[in-house]
């Protein structure tokens, strides 16, 4: 790890001031991603700003009946939060198997959302890919079994690594962001960006001196939610594909819904075809199967990951069955 200067920021204002810096300054929260990247020389900041003590680490109810989660809240505290679990079960389902106990004890909500891709080419300093200022994505002609099957127009073919991003998008969350130019709110669905040649160095809309401070969750209303992950390993790993569904119900009929897939695209992937297939239909096994089929109709797998299409199909179907209260394995 390259030596760096360190700032222990204790307020949002101090954190933003410390991030505004001529060289490379990076925020450090739980450190479970950043420190590993620094050890591997993927990132070599001249300054590290500890934002753990600067950002909110609690969750509080909002006047609108929703909840507001501080970016510094640890995953374990999120898991142990009784009210969030009751109101937003998919968030807890997604948080349960993040990393390992040690990681959940340190990692934060903000860090989970802003962690960098887990692509093995990105994580290897020898591969200077688009995301490191290079001019190719090594996954295209390389080992791409864990890469994207949706949104594969390039230039980068990563899958977004955040488990929490998917339920946050599904629940229609908004992120509060602060920076040297003030604060702003960004819909979770618009926070994460599809790669283009202009923005490929990042996965979201944050500027270098900006910080995500809060996740604002609206009151869920009369919804049924489901979450399903397909994993290769039971722990210590990211899912191969997973899905959160949040369905607004009118009796037994789905009025409208959000179907969001994770680990299949460079962003949390909202499936319009699946949502259309659900609208106006009774919530049952046939509807779930049809929506899952619709979801994978847009899949464009790479040379080595066509197997993920079936996994994504299963994740969508079972997440919907889960919302319907039908038991799956």
């Amino acid at each position: 790890m390259k030596a760096f200067a360190y700032v222990n920021a204790t307020s949002e204002k101090d954190a933003v001031a410390a991030l505004k810096f001529d060289g490379i300054a990076l925020p450090l929260a739980g450190g479970q991603d950043l420190l590993a990247r620094m050890k591997d020389y993927i990132d070599t900041p001249e300054r590290v700003v500890n934002v753990k003590n600067a950002l909110d680490r609690t969750a509080a109810p909002t006047s609108g009946g929703g909840w507001r989660i501080g970016a510094s809240m640890k995953i374990v505290d999120l898991l142990e939060h009784a009210d969030i679990g009751k109101m937003y079960p998919a968030i807890i389902a997604a948080a349960t198997d993040i990393g390992t106990p040690q990681i959940r004890h340190q990692a934060t909500v903000g860090g989970n959302l802003n962690q960098r891709p887990r692509c093995w080419y990105f994580r290897n300093e020898e591969f200077v890919c688009y995301k490191k200022g290079g001019s190719r994505c090594f996954a295209v002609n390389g080992e791409n079994q864990y890469h994207a099957i949706f949104g594969n127009d390039g230039p980068s073919h990563i899958v977004h690594p955040s488990s929490l991003a998917v339920p946050f998008v599904a629940y229609g969350a908004t992120f509060r962001v602060i920076g040297s130019k003030g604060e702003r709110e960004v819909a979770a669905a618009e926070y994460f960006t599809m790669p283009t040649l202009q923005n490929v160095l990042k996965e979201n809309v944050l500027d270098d001196d900006e910080l995500l401070t809060h996740v604002m969750l609206p009151a869920p209303g009369n919804v049924k939610t489901g979450h399903y992950e397909v994993r290769y390993k039971a722990s210590h790993d990211w899912p191969l594909a997973f899905t959160t569904v949040v369905l607004a119900m009118n009796g037994g009929i789905v009025q409208s819904g959000r179907v969001v897939l994770g680990a299949v695209a460079p962003v949390p992937w909202r499936s319009k075809p699946a949502e259309d297939a659900l609208a106006g239909k009774p919530l049952n096994e046939a509807t779930a199967a049809a929506a899952a089929e619709a979801a994978v109709s847009e899949a464009k797998p790479m040379s080595g990951n066509a197997y993920k299409v079936q996994i994504a199909r299963t994740a969508v179907k079972r997440a919907i069955l889960n919302a319907a209260g039908i038991k799956t394995v």
């Binding site: 222990n8 450090l28 450190g31 420190l35 106990p101 004890h105």
Partner: peptide
């Protein structure tokens, strides 16, 4: 492993286990 992947460095900080390899001493 020095990357928070194996657990051999596990310590307890304020009652909870952490990977000491993935924690800055100054923090």
């Amino acid at each position: 492993c020095d990357r928070g992947s194996c657990g051999a460095c596990t310590m307890i900080v304020d009652g909870r286990t952490v990977y000491a390899c993935s924690t800055l001493a100054i923090d």
